[in-house]
Design a protein around this nucleic acid. Sequence first.
DNA 1: CAGTGAGCGAGCTTCCGCTTGACTT
Length: 597
Amino acid sequence: MEKQYLVIVESPTKAKTIRKFLPKNFIVEASVGHIRDLPQSAADTPLKYKKEPWARLGINVDQDFEPLYIIPKDKTKIIADLKAKLKDADELYLATDEDREGESISWHLTEILKPKCPVKRMVFHEITKSAIESALKHTRQVDVKLVRAQETRRILDRLVGFTVSPVLWKKVAFGLSAGRVQSVALRLMVERERQRMRFKKANYWDVLADVAFSGKNFDARLIAIKDKRIAQGKDFDETTGMLKEAKDLLVLGEKEVQAIIGRVSKAAWTVTSVEEKQSTSKPSAPFITSTLQQEGSRKLHLSTRDVMRTAQSLYEQGFITYMRTDSPNLSQDALAEARVIVEKTYGKDYLSDAPRQFTAKSKGAQEAHEAIRPAGTFTPPEKTGLTGKELDLYTLIWRRTLASQMSEAQKSSMSVRISADDATFSATGTKIVFPGFLKAYDEGLESGDASWGTEALLPALKTGDALSLKEAAAQAHETKPPARFTEASIVQAMEKAGIGRPSTYASVISTLLDRKYVLRNSGALVPTFTGFAVTQLLEKHFDNLVDLEFTSKMEESLDEIAEGQLDHLKYLKEFYLGKKGLKEITDQKDKEIGMEN
DNA sequence: CAGTGAGCGAGCTTCCGCTTGACTT
């Protein structure tokens, strides 16, 4: 009889795809994410353990931090199904994602399914027939050290969350929360708001002139009087509203500007210098979760949740690859397909000389998946039959992927100096000589459409040319405080700091909104009084936890644990039970903070 | 005697990260 194999992946959609690449004697099933976890709340804790002093944490902190794992209700049926399928299998292939969490899922599966047949760990980074066949041949064993690193991460997050949150219930308000990720994200927003509150507005004036040369009009702006430069926004200090120190600049008021206009209106306008520069720009990397959320927000005005919901639907319909990823990498198949479509759609001139490959920028990237790109044969958007948000998002992904394999854009910029009486004016123009990738995708644009009609052109000028003044107008300016975070920009900031993962960016924002730590105000996230109070308390008493560096330091330790260079118990003991450990600090602060009130 | 309600004590809230549906707004 033919041998039977059971392959387990994380996502049901992925299982469906892989099934097509494998013979009938391979049964492919999904774990649907994690299958075991610490109890989510007291209600989930088995009666047997409820009396234990550590039951509330779900971790026996005095007994080597032994975690209490339970199977969540919604996973019991999945486990039963997997067990039944395993009965008929001669071999088990664990094909969960190749990252810390995926390794852990594989380990939990062996713990629960207790397979009697041989077990092999297989990994692949792209879902193609050749990649899967190769993965089947190159299996390994579950990496127990990597599993330890995941478990340590899980325990640390629970300890932080369930130790610090109760302090907030006592000192601020019932039901609040703190955590390694959410509290730092909140702090970023609070700090930005403090900057805004400290901000002092500055006012200054300048002159915008409408000038003409051989029948063509263009704008020129006042930049200096008698070689003394005019102050611009960036020259003012944000917290004092005064000119930054050691700047010998001219801050103009309305009266002075009117006097200048009077002088230059009667003067001769002459070009004193012309500088031309050629430049090229390269396309951005294909989408990863964070950049998709940013561009979905900027170009399509969708919330991070909306972006993810829509992408999930596109994924399930087979239009795009997996939407939770931190890798901008394109598979060999995808590269080839993208290049074929670029040539077909835009012509050979628009194809980059060589395939372009991108690497992850953020520190914590685990790169278990590919970039978010059109799946299979890159169906052109108009042939997908999609509508509404789905069509818009797919079009964005399709264009961004193609752009990544297109030629550079070539620009030519011209910078001109003009003198009139004692004043110097400046005009700049940019011309796109060759649009290249901009034809498919222009990041600078707010709408989804690509276009390169935004260039500001100057006539062909040379030194000594005489210009005619049409109009000179006084313009008032005031400096602006730093902008509040939006959903998109906070995700960008979190990713840069290595805080949170692609699967959690959207839910972290939801938590902050749920707790009323921040409010949504026409796109901006505005910290509330509660948000300020919580941040202030955490900064004062748990400063290391809300430090931007905390997660990156933790990641370093987890890496050492995964490599066997650091003992996970030593790390956890020091973090929680050590002299300056979380437990000691919390007990001490509990009393301290109480005294203040 | 039955019904009411003050007073008391017990139990609960919370984390991050991996996946979908089942549910509500």
